[in-house]
Design a protein around this nucleic acid. Structure first.
Lengths: 223, 223
DNA sequence: CGTGCCAGGTGCCAT
DNA sequence: ATGGCACTTGGCACG
């Protein structure tokens, strides 16, 4: 059960209480969650202004910041990990300033009403594993080249890239070089251009016949 | 101040209390925030497993889902808006299942400890404005072509040419066609290739001198 | 470090 | 719906 040391919850705190809790959470590198009425300025690679409204603010222990509106998967404003924080009261407003160096970016959040605030330390050692559903396709091609074409021999593959994309090099039944590009998603014209550039460059290099094969769940009409 | 109707906070609820609160929040389309020990399965475009650990779960009123670990800007698991939910108790475990159609994706979160739960309705009508996007750069150039070059006349923007779209299209002081490609970030060789394809295509089409201009904060060494 | 490239990318807007 | 493309893209691997 939640130890008092582990999670602190304030419902409808005063701005002074909230300011104190924010300072404490940030200095102790605890995770901070706040809900209230706020407005946000961002300046850095771009510049943005978010007018007042009710949102969720999350500051994580690694110094990343998220501002979430009531809708949408993405945060409306954010700051990547590594920020340095300043916070305090400015008149009737609680401000939190998150500064990132390299590139220099500043995010400022101003609260005039705080509905609730939570500060906590979470322990998460759980392993995360992601399996691309097309990864089996890649393995299948490596193990069973005949899935693509009879008589195909695999020579090499670009194993450095992440699952979902791999270049496979092989030789077909007639001794021609074969370049296979696997796309996990619908392949657009950019994929075709990229493959054709590979093929051209290999053709120039080897002076042999080279074929390119594009393997994808779907190909845009410009095939 | 937070109306009881507006925000409900449960500290260290029992699983039964939490299950009730979750059902209520989901059916009334309120925003749900939970903190506790959980594990997560995802299956859809890919497949993932997240082993047990302490995390933050947020379900928004539009049916989007976020699972956040204690670190990192990005959610470890998520679901875009529009999900349909099922939840309940399965033995000692509180489960929440978020199903998305088109594409079919299923996210399942299982809690065995809930440290904290909040359900709320937030009102957010605040306008969001972002500046210094590529769009704004384009407008600035459209309004003030001399920013690029004296004597430049703009003819069109987002003009469709063979390989794709040209950002800005004009004629310079000496009557030569000018193609301007705008990149908000460091322009790599891909941008150069793209621009050169545009230039080639237009040169072939018009049989006139064509210049390409790349507008970007920085250009990779392969210029 | 910069450069390149994938991502369960997401989102926006065009046809 | 499909396609094309920008994004404060973020993230990682590699030279």
């Amino acid at each position: 059960m939640p130890d008092k040391e582990m999670i602190t919850v304030l419902e409808a705190p005063t701005r002074e209480e909230a300011a104190e809790a924010v300072k404490s959470a940030l200095s102790r590198r605890r995770i901070l969650m706040m809900v209230g009425n706020c407005w946000v300025n961002y300046q850095g690679r771009a510049r943005s202004i978010l007018n007042p409204g009710e949102r969720i603010l999350i500051i994580k222990e690694d110094g990343s910041v998220l501002v979430h509106r009531p809708r949408g998967y993405e945060p409306v404003n954010w700051q990547p990990p590594g920020c340095i924080f300043h916070s305090g009261l400015e008149g009737d407003v609680l401000f939190i300033k998150a500064v990132r160096r390299k590139p220099r970016e500043v995010l400022q959040v101003f609260f005039d009403k705080i509905y609730f605030l939570a500060a906590m330390s979470l322990l998460d050692k759980g392993e995360f594993s992601l399996h691309a559903s097309e990864e089996e396709m890649q393995k299948a091609i490596m193990n069973q080249p005949s899935l693509i074409e009879d008589g195909l021999r695999i020579i090499a593959y670009e194993k450095k890239v992440e699952p979902g994309f791999v270049d496979v090099y092989g030789v077909d039944r007639d001794g021609r070089l074969v370049v296979i590009e696997i796309k996990r998603r619908t392949a657009g014209k950019e994929a075709v251009l990229q493959l054709s550039r590979y093929v051209d460059s290999l053709r120039g290099e080897h002076g042999r016949k080279v074929r390119g094969i594009l393997v994808a769940p779907k190909i845009a009409r410009q095939a």
